[in-house]
Design a protein around this nucleic acid. Structure first.
Lengths: 218, 218
DNA sequence: GCCGAAACCATACTCAGGTTTGACCGTGGG
DNA sequence: CCCACGGTCAAACCTGAGTATGGTTTCGGC
């Protein structure tokens, strides 16, 4: 799990494998975490307030957010909701000095990776980050796959999409033609176009793509 | 969410819509929860010790388990692991008198629906149970669908399965024949048998079944 | 008014999918 | 020993899928 090796070797650090975003109003805590994560090879970004986090652009890297529950202006829990609503899906690790059980439960229900009571052991934080980054890497993989697919799906015309959903539902061209009030030959043409545009080399592949896209059953 | 209606109507209660299993060594707590859940129309089962829970057979009903963290002989958290390992997938709601944050986080990470500190409001418990039951109902639906499918898949011969995985991967009969060292006609026969046994009326359906079953790509 | 895109359809042809009939072989159980 | 079952294959046949060619219409933008 832990990023190992190359401790005293390559000084050129081309692209760190993950970005840890730390939000805490206590400078000492920020810097302590900063050096902890840098020591194991992660890139870091430090913020004293949530506003900075929302303002700065996100790097195109797997990562996670480390949030103090008590933040200037807003609760970390509420910020979690804000981030989700604004489409930032980075995994979150909470830490707190004076937390309670309902707080931790709420955070975990909302998808937090961990909820650490201060003081915590460095290793616990590193373990949590490792889990978070693994989770984010996975999420990014899935997102990327779906994005490419969606882009191709966008290039389909309305009719081609209609035909596609019927075809992946298992209907024969003849039946699709009936439902859409078309001739079979026209269905074949739309179907062929859909296959080409979706880069599907078989019906099986097209069906899987439709599943991934979450296309509605007709 | 809450089971409403028919308050003063039908006295015949044929089948309760859910079973709440309560495990707590304090009889007062058990009975208090018992009457709470009965008052909203759920069936209940009470246990003073984990052993009783593991011994008694599970009813074929959606439900959930309500566990005190401190139990005679074993921690509720450990019991959670035990249950998972022994294939009991009922959602769990924890309650505790002297819990702490790491405890609640551990429980939530392990999939608990909620973690309530005593004393809790009745409504919080009912809400948690409602979520748990909804989750269990969903899980049961999925399990049932997969079970039927798996039963059908079991009836396939070795060859039929081999052919099936290649077919749902998108290969043409000819290509499957090549890979398996068969003639195309033999592949067609196995393919047809697989379709019949799986009750798939189209290739699209077979592909989806394979996805649901999590069949390995060849 | 013209052009391009999209939708529509027909004929004709090729190839893939699927069934039926009939046949042969090996294995394991009654 | 024979039978059932699974696996194998072939010939014949039919249906479905897919492409090419060629043509019509409609609609929106330049």
């Amino acid at each position: 799990m832990m990023p190992s090796g190359k401790s005293g070797a390559t000084p050129a650090k081309p692209t760190p494998e993950a970005m840890i975003i730390i939000v805490d109003d206590d400078a000492a805590v920020r810097e302590s975490l900063d050096s902890l994560f840098r020591s194991v090879g992660f890139a870091t970004r430090l913020h004293a307030a949530p506003a900075e986090l929302l303002a700065a652009p996100l790097p195109d890297l797997p990562g996670c957010i480390i949030l103090d529950v008590r933040l200037p202006g807003i609760s970390g829990l509420d910020l979690q909701g804000e981030l989700a609503r604004s489409g930032i899906a980075l995994p979150i690790i909470f830490m707190t000095g004076h937390g309670d059980i309902p707080m931790s439960v709420r955070a975990m229900k909302a998808g937090a990776v961990d909820f650490l009571a201060k003081p915590f052991r460095d290793q616990d934080m590193l373990d949590a980050a490792s889990v978070a980054i693994t989770r984010d890497r996975q999420r990014r993989r899935e997102t990327q796959a779906v994005d490419g697919l969606r882009a191709r799906y966008e290039t389909l015309t309305a009719r081609e999409r209609e035909v596609m959903v019927h075809v992946v539902d298992g209907l024969m061209n003849k039946q699709v033609a009936g439902r859409l009030g078309l001739s079979e030959i026209t269905v074949k043409i739309h179907r062929g176009n859909a296959m080409r545009k979706m880069l599907a080399r078989s019906l099986a592949e097209l069906v899987r793509q439709a599943e991934t896209l979450g296309l509605p059953r007709p």
